[in-house]
C-alpha cells in the first residue's frame, strides 16, 4: 500500500521534482560562477572581506528557492486531489483516512527532504574550495531557516489547497505568510542559531494540519 500510494504521489510530482532540482542546481551553478568570476576579476581577499566583515551572503540568490520548491511541490501534490474532489477517491481507498492523508504528506516530505539535502550539499560543499571552514559552517546555518521556510510552505500550501472554503483559505494564507516571513527576519548570517530548532518544532506541529482538512471533509463541510 505504501508503494502504491507513493507511486501515485510520484506521478503527480515527478515533473515538478526534476524541475525544482534543475532550477536549484542552475541557481547554485550561477552562484559559483559568480564567485569564480569575482575571484578572477577582483581580489579573493576583497570577496572574503565582504563575507566576513560586511555581512555579505554570497549565495543570497538562493534565498527563496527552497521556499518556491516547497510551494510548487505542495501544489503539484494537492491540486490534483482537490480537482473534481478526487480526495474522495483517496479517502475511499481501503485504509484509514488519516493514514491515507499522512502517507501523502510523508511522501511529499521525503521528496522535499531529498531535494533539499541534494541542494544543500551542492550549495555548501563546493564553497569549501573557495572559503575557510568557518564561512562554510556559518553559511550552512544561514540556509537552514531558508530550507525550513520551504518545508513550512509545503505543509501550509497543502493545507490551503485542500481547504474548501475561500474564507478559510484567505485566513490560512495570511497566517502562512506571517509564519514564513519569520524565517526571513534577519539578514545576518547565522542569526537563527538559537531559533531553528523551536521553529522546526512548530513545523512538525504544522505537518498534522492536513488532518484538520480531512476531519472537516468527513464532517461533510466540503
Amino acid at each position: 500500500m505504501w508503494k502504491s500510494m507513493f507511486y501515485k504521489e510520484w506521478i503527480k510530482i515527478r515533473l515538478v521534482f526534476w524541475l525544482s532540482l534543475a532550477i536549484g542546481a542552475i541557481a547554485i551553478l550561477g552562484i559559483y560562477l559568480n564567485v569564480r568570476h569575482s575571484f578572477i576579476i577582483a581580489n579573493a581577499h576583497e570577496f572574503w572581506d565582504g563575507i566576513i566583515n560586511k555581512m555579505y551572503i554570497y549565495f543570497n540568490l538562493f534565498k527563496f528557492i527552497p521556499l518556491g520548491i516547497g510551494v510548487i511541490i505542495g501544489l503539484a501534490q494537492f491540486i490534483p486531489e482537490v480537482k473534481q474532489r478526487r480526495i474522495k477517491l483517496t479517502l475511499h481507498l481501503p485504509l484509514n483516512e488519516e493514514k491515507a492523508g499522512l502517507k501523502m504528506v510523508i511522501f511529499g516530505v521525503i521528496c522535499l527532504v531529498a531535494l533539499y539535502l541534494t541542494l544543500f550539499a551542492l550549495l555548501i560543499f563546493p564553497g569549501r574550495y573557495y572559503f575557510p571552514y568557518e564561512v562554510i559552517a556559518l553559511s550552512a546555518s544561514t540556509v537552514i531557516p531558508w530550507f525550513s521556510a520551504g518545508l513550512a510552505a509545503y505543509f501550509l500550501t497543502g493545507m490551503i489547497t485542500i481547504e474548501p472554503l475561500w474564507k478559510y483559505k484567505v485566513f490560512y494564507a495570511l497566517l502562512a505568510f506571517s509564519f514564513v516571513h519569520l524565517f526571513f527576519q534577519s539578514p545576518i548570517a547565522g542569526a537563527y542559531k538559537y531559533a531553528w530548532l523551536p521553529f522546526l518544532g512548530i513545523i512538525l506541529l504544522m505537518s498534522m494540519s492536513i488532518l484538520f482538512s480531512i476531519y472537516r471533509f468527513r464532517k461533510g463541510e466540503m
Binding site: 502504491s4 501515485k8 503527480k12 473534481q84 478526487r86 474522495k88 477517491l89
Partner: peptide, 22 residues
C-alpha cells in the same frame, strides 16, 4: 464518483498498477 472522476493524471497502465496494490 459522479462524472467518472478518477486520477486523470495517470494513464491506463499506471492507474491499474496503483489500485492493484490496495
Amino acid at each position: 464518483i459522479e462524472n467518472h472522476v478518477q486520477y486523470a493524471f495517470m494513464n491506463i497502465y499506471q492507474i491499474e498498477k496503483f489500485y492493484s496494490g490496495f
